[in-house]
Design a protein around this nucleic acid. Structure first.
Lengths: 235, 235
DNA sequence: TAGTGGTCTAGACCACGGT
DNA sequence: CCGTGGTCTAGACCACTAG
């Protein structure tokens, strides 16, 4: 796959961005520069840039150049508002259950209609906080076979998806969500430090990735009273 | 804009699909066919197909052809599960307030941070039901200037977005959401026929469209107990 | 005016799916 | 085998941005 020229350029530039050689707002070399550097034609260079644009790493500005995006363009990911914005370091992630191998994904999972159940999957659970305020409980399951040795992996910047991207070069390619407003049960309420019976936003997600073997199932429970859940999408 | 060759092909094919000349699952003419028909090169034909693919109208199958997708690929739109699936005709939309010209968008609107307020905008409100069960209240605002004469327009298949696409050739290009789990207030509860204080999912949306003048603001209130809200996204 | 990305031509060869 | 979409070359001209 990596013998494709445009993929090579695409991955080369993606690495430069991820390594921080190009920062947010920086302009990448022009398409013509890359043509010279890699001895390719405009068409191929453009294809690489187009892909990076589709993946949300850059935005192309007619007449100016291609600029590294401030945040990766949304992938339809739902994010708690304040998490990405709050760069001040007041966002904390508390690991409730370190990644462990479990025998199965909870069968009540909403997206498991007609799909084979996961066996031998990795599970981990985290609590997201803004300052001292718990905002979201996050439970994740995914097949162990796809990410061998993950339980020994250190998270990159505390981010699961960044870890996938940088350490495994796996990108999220799709997601399905189900959203429900529910009364918080006792354990959820305790973790979120809210009263039992308060409304919580329950989000069930199935993520597809660039590795067909890796599908990620997540269950989120959010206290949206102070920090609503946000989501943005651009073509 | 329509003098661009690839745009012409793109719109031509889109019309054929929308008119039902090509049905879901049908294969469009091959890229080479279109090259002959329109006297263009592969590059241009491919660009048209690529755009249609990005917009979710078709999927390209290597070695086989380009097939009309069953449903438009998700645009990050949140949809009530059962609405798109329920083809049996048990989905009903009740207009609570017909489109009317109002003086302003409610200023408490969540996405109005730092943006100029809308004046002279169209407002309409609908209640979505599955069978007899009210599931979602939907309130919409958008600038009147962008869609002159909209108050006289008949909805295509009862769908606002289909109407935009077919009658105005405007596509949704992006959206921002804010989601909250809340207690239903009295009026919301009454419309949704649930008890006051039940949890409802409150979604605030700002839609961007292919017409820079047209921005749509929506407020949704959903009873998710029976029909959760769904959302899917694919690169 | 120089440099950027956007559109387009006229080819070529490859990888995949079905006959 | 043929037709499909996927990659790629080597050019050209246009539209936009900025000094």
């Amino acid at each position: 796959m990596a013998d494709l020229k445009y993929k090579q350029i695409q991955n080369f530039l993606k690495e430069q961005i991820q390594k921080g050689i190009y920062h947010t707002g920086d302009f990448l070399p022009s398409e013509n520069d890359l043509c010279e550097q890699f001895k390719i034609t405009r068409t191929t260079a453009r294809k690489a840039f187009d892909e990076l644009s589709k993946e949300g790493f850059i935005e192309k500005l007619h007449g100016k150049g291609s600029r590294v995006r401030e945040r990766r363009k949304s992938l339809g990911l739902l994010t708690v508002k304040g998490f990405s914005e709050a760069v001040g370091g007041n966002v904390q992630t508390e690991m409730i259950k370190e990644p462990v191998l479990v025998k199965s994904c909870p069968h009540e999972f909403l997206h498991n209609k007609g799909e084979q159940h996961l066996t031998d999957c990795i599970f981990f659970e985290r609590l997201r906080k803004v300052g001292d305020l718990p905002v979201m409980i996050e439970k994740n399951w995914f097949s162990e076979s796809a990410l061998k040795g993950f339980t020994q992996t250190e998270f990159v910047d505390g981010s699961f998806f960044k870890t996938l991207s940088r350490n495994y070069r796996i990108e999220i390619t799709g997601s399905e969500h189900e959203l429900r407003a529910e009364f918080a049960d006792a354990t959820t309420a305790a973790l979120l430090k809210i009263r039992e019976g308060s409304p919580v936003l329950h989000i069930s997600i199935k993520f597809s990735t660039s590795n067909p073997e890796l599908v990620i199932y997540s269950e989120l429970y959010c206290n949206t009273s102070r920090y609503p859940v946000g989501n943005s999408y651009f073509i």
